[in-house]
Simulated scan of single mutants.
Amino acid sequence: MLYALLCDDKPNSLQLRMDTRAEHLAHLNDLGDALKFAGPFLDDNDKPCGSLVVIEADSREAAKEIADSDPYAVAGLFATVTVRPWNWAIKNPASS
């Protein structure tokens, strides 16, 4: 099952995001094939203000564990994290 991790940064936390970015990217790369895609949300000034990460996991609990172990989450960057099951219906490369 695919899960979307919808993460909103705390206000005025761009520096924390930048300081933790290398560890965050390493965490995502360590997910291997479980990571389907990821990237930041941008604010009105084109600055990162959150994240969208789509992963494959056995359960919502397993997806939440992955979200909780993200260095951004550990550093306290996120104001909210929502874990939602997601169906990749259109342009899914796995169904081509």
Rank of each mutant, 00 (worst) to 15 (best):
A62T: 05
C49L: 05
E65H: 14
H24D: 05
Y72G: 02
P93Q: 15
L35T: 07
A4C: 13
E23I: 06
P48I: 00
E65Q: 12
G39N: 04
G50H: 04
T80S: 13
Y3I: 04
K47I: 00
L77A: 05
P85L: 08
R21N: 06
D19L: 10
D68G: 08
W86T: 10
Y3C: 06
A89W: 14
L28G: 05
A67Y: 03
D46K: 01
K36L: 13
A79W: 04
G32P: 07
P71E: 03
S96L: 15
L77S: 03
E23G: 06
P71S: 05
N87L: 12
P71L: 01
A38T: 06
L31C: 13
L5C: 05
N87Q: 13
P93L: 12
G39T: 04
H24C: 08
A62S: 08
A57P: 04
P93R: 13
K10A: 08
R21Q: 09
A22D: 15
D19K: 11
A75W: 00
I66T: 07
E23H: 08
S13V: 08
Y3M: 08
D8G: 05
A57L: 07
D44N: 13
S51W: 03
A63S: 10
D19Y: 14
A26I: 13
C7T: 05
A75T: 00
L52C: 09
G32D: 10
L14W: 06
L6H: 10
K91I: 15
I55P: 02
M18R: 11
A63H: 04
P11K: 10
T80A: 08
L6K: 05
L35Q: 05
L14M: 09
Y72S: 01
S96M: 13
S95D: 15
P40L: 01
L25F: 11
T80L: 03
D43L: 06
D9Q: 06
V81H: 07
R60N: 11
A62W: 03
V74G: 03
A75Y: 01
W86A: 11
D46I: 00
R60I: 14
G50K: 00
A62N: 04
K36C: 14
L28N: 09
D68I: 08
F78E: 02
L31V: 11
S96N: 15
L25V: 15
D68R: 06
L5T: 00
N29K: 11
E56P: 03
K36R: 14
N45Y: 06
A94C: 12
V81P: 04
H24A: 06
G76D: 02
R60D: 10
F37V: 11
D70S: 06
Y72K: 01
L5E: 03
D30L: 13
K47H: 04
L42Q: 01
P71Y: 03
P48E: 01
R84E: 12
